[in-house]
């Protein structure tokens, strides 16, 4: 999968500005390294036992106290827990460049953020295709840290997908995902169009102050 350069530039704070030659060259180098990463992995697990409550929603028997999550999943008969990671190799690349080429480290950091999102986008596209025959479509993915979905829910999400064992994704006692370039998310599967109101930036509560907005 090829690295999305526009997204990399967005994470670098370029917005829609064009990069200078050398930054462009650095992005190209990073793209090559990322496309050859041996440790990009993901795992998904679907659950059809969704139970809503005033505080939130429970998936697979695990209760999540998040109304925003409950909203995202409203009307869904199933939900998919997705965990994805670029793996230890990606972290080691960053660690090396932090010590030896700080500029490249900053570019690599942005590139890796873009790349892991691409990995997730690809999984979501695959879900769309796989569930279309059943008349189901995936909602936008919703992760701990969004809205009122607390970071402290990471361990439960990882456990639901058996992520530590299947893809080596764990989290620290401060709920930092390790390896770091990783994503955990819940995706609802709904009949008809998802009602939660749109993608990403448009629905994010930080959109007014964020330096990395898409538009």
């Amino acid at each position: 999968m090829q690295l999305d350069r526009a997204e990399t530039l967005r994470y670098l704070g370029y917005g829609t500005h064009a990069p200078d030659e050398r930054t462009d060259a650095l992005i190209a180098e990073c793209a090559k390294e990322l496309e050859a990463l041996p440790t990009v992995r993901h795992v998904e697990r679907s659950f059809s036992d969704l139970v809503w409550s005033p505080e939130g929603v429970s998936v697979g028997g695990a209760s999540f106290a998040s109304r925003r999550l409950a909203e995202t999943l409203s009307g869904c008969g199933q939900a998919v827990v997705l965990c994805a990671t670029l793996g230890a190799a990606a972290d080691r690349l960053r660690m090396r460049y932090i010590r030896t080429d700080l500029t490249k480290a900053a570019v690599m950091d942005a590139a890796q953020s873009a790349y892991i999102e691409q990995v997730c986008d690809a999984v979501c596209a695959d879900l769309r295709q796989r569930y279309a025959p059943q008349g189901l479509s995936p909602t936008p993915r919703f992760s701990p840290g969004y809205g009122d979905f607390a970071l402290s829910e990471q361990p439960m999400l990882l456990a639901l997908a058996n992520a530590p064992r299947r893809i080596g994704l764990t989290c620290s006692e401060t709920f930092l995902l390790t390896p770091q370039k990783s994503v955990t998310a819940i995706i609802g599967l709904t009949r008809g169009t998802p009602t939660c109101g749109g993608e990403r930036c448009a629905v994010c509560e930080h959109r007014e102050l964020c330096r990395f907005r898409r538009t």
Binding site: M95, P164, G168, T170, S172, T174, L176, T178
Partner: peptide, 10 residues
């Protein structure tokens, strides 16, 4: 269930 340093915090 935790990654060891330097990849993690243990």
């Amino acid at each position: 269930g935790r990654l060891l340093e330097p990849l993690g915090t243990m």
